[in-house]
Amino acid sequence: MQVPAPFEYARATTVDEAVALMGRFGDTARLIAGGHSLLPMMKLRLANFDYLIDINDLHGELGFIAVEPGVVRIGALTRHRELLDSAELAGVFPIFRDAERVIADPVVRNRGTLGGSLCQADPSEDLSAVCTTLDASCVIRGPLGTRTVSMADFHRGPYETAVADGEILTEVRFPVRDRGGSAYSKVERRAGDWAVVSAGSAVWLDDGGRIADARVGLAAVGPNTTGIPEISATLRGEEPSDEVFARAGEIAARSCEPATDQRGSAEYKRHLAAELTVRTLRTAVARAARGEA
């Protein structure tokens, strides 16, 4: 049994209380939600915090999926399992179900949360790629109130976010547009492993079936999950075709910054960035065309 260093523990019963505790303890404290990244790191003594503020009691306040006209709002404490099980969410954004099926394992999914995934800011993290793909924005609450930042600004580097000491990510918002489709694909060495590379695509078609807009998010090929504006610019106005998707794949391959590691060579990862971009775009377009969202 691996054992962490000593720490103090508090359970917050309201978001305000959690914000107050985080404000009081500053960078010596860490929120714990699902704990499936934090606790292993603490047991390995790679992460050492004097205080853990447990926010699992806030699930009533921060665990929700609200599909509203023009926007989907998801509470930061919504668990992977809830994202996977929500037919309503899959109806709007099938990319969530694609991704959740390949995130970790059922035990982790029962505990792990959307907010925890984003705040961990692991470059290989799947939900971050989903949020990047869907152009999400993050609602952060602190002692002075609430502010909203885009995904592009939320991640500041590996394991670094825009959430300051004394602040909490409370909600993630996703704009909903008509005639959209989305998809996610991941290559992993083994079920439950972090991605070698994964890709998400979201596509919106115009009335003529052309691509009105498209977004691609990649995980595990850079310091953070990466959205690639050049792909969006290239695809806009195009008739969907394998040739167009291949062009997007080429951009993905050359735009990303993978590193060689145990999961694979940088070259292979570039190849996957292209391959998975093509595959997810194809699926996303097909879904959009079928009106599956």
Binding site: R189, R263, G264, S265, Y268, K269, H271
Partner: peptide
């Protein structure tokens, strides 16, 4: 024979 090694 990980995916990366098979690709190689």
């Amino acid at each position: 024979l990980t995916p990366s090694r098979v690709w190689d």
